[in-house]
Design a protein around this nucleic acid. Sequence first.
DNA 1: TCTATATTTCCTTATTTCTCGAAATATCGA
DNA 2: TCGATATTTCGAGAAATAAGGAAATATAGA
Lengths: 125, 125
Amino acid sequence: MKFLYSRMMEQTDAVAALSALAHAGRLEVFRLLVKAGPAGMAAGKIAEATGTLPNTLSASLNLLTQAGLIHSRRDGRSIIYSADFEAMSGLLTFLMEDCCSGEPAICGPVVDLARAGGCAAEGCA
Amino acid sequence: MKFLYSRMMEQTDAVAALSALAHAGRLEVFRLLVKAGPAGMAAGKIAEATGTLPNTLSASLNLLTQAGLIHSRRDGRSIIYSADFEAMSGLLTFLMEDCCSGEPAICGPVVDLARAGGCAAEGCA
DNA sequence: TCTATATTTCCTTATTTCTCGAAATATCGA
DNA sequence: TCGATATTTCGAGAAATAAGGAAATATAGA
């Protein structure tokens, strides 16, 4: 089997990603960026949307970036953040790894649910 | 669309679950239980497999239980822990929620990867 | 160049989390 | 009932994390 992303996620990476997400404010930011898609969102807009102080938000964005879950690019005076969908895939894959070990009947529903939840909007192949 | 699990996961639950997993020792335990499947594993066996002190392991198991990620049953002198696959589904679903918002083309690969990773063993529908 | 906007960095304090030793609880078999 | 096994609870000290005020940096436009 061939993976579409470059490198298998290791436990250390997974812990960093999970730690970054294990915080109400950061989780909110991340999900906002997931929803925003590849276009991303300026830090200021995120602060506005979440009602966070700029320095607090900056710390959150930094942590999420270090964890590899988001990345940024400058656009004029603004800095645009966007979710890293590849990293997200890696994390989900890591969490589900070996879920099927010998028991596809158990794993199946888990994966189907995940699949259904992610694509609730419909039209998702 | 109908969800197979009882209740939508909320941010508070997700943070609790992510916090529980955001720790090398606990993540290892959880993945071990995911691999072990519904049969589960006795606390002593987990301690042996991971090389953890019994009290430290107990704290980890407690946290994972409170987060709803695992549950336990007594069997003689042993206590058998097993992963809660429904909770796992809920968490994955929560993380991927709105991933598709208007852009199935982006969401698709993420979900497919997760699906492929979880069922790498093959035979998984 | 000067001023305003956008974001980050530095620093300090309060809180939470982690780990371990020691003691307690529960179950089993003799 | 007694001793051994399996696991949990308690308590304390060390380390990591969180939040906010104030100042610094970078970009844009007049």
